[in-house]
Amino acid sequence: MSEFTSNSLLVVGAFFYFAGTVGLLRFPDVYTRLHALAKADNLGLGCVLAGLALQALETDGLAAALKLLLIWPLALAASAAVSYAIAQRAAALGVRPWQKGDE
């Protein structure tokens, strides 16, 4: 049962990674691409980490599982800081946000 749960979490994580990559390639400008990068990819990482932590809990103990989960807040903080820095810089350089109807 637990193996099924962790494998499903891995697959769901892969799905969100895939969606994030598709968004990065399809979205029209820097700002919208940041949405794809900051949200879908982080959720994918979260699911993958949760799935692996479940497996590690059974074989390697609690501390190993918590260590895997510890990566998530680090990645979240990093990605929040980076997306703000890039969005702010883009705005300062006068990159106009894409609007509906633009090419």
């Binding site: 891995l10 990065l24 980490l49 990645a75």
Partner: peptide, 17 residues
């Protein structure tokens, strides 16, 4: 550069896997 950042999050995923 955004792709390089994609490597940040996806690379972490690949490494733990």
């Amino acid at each position: 550069m955004l792709t390089a950042l994609l490597f940040g999050s996806t690379g972490v995923g690949v490494l733990v896997l």
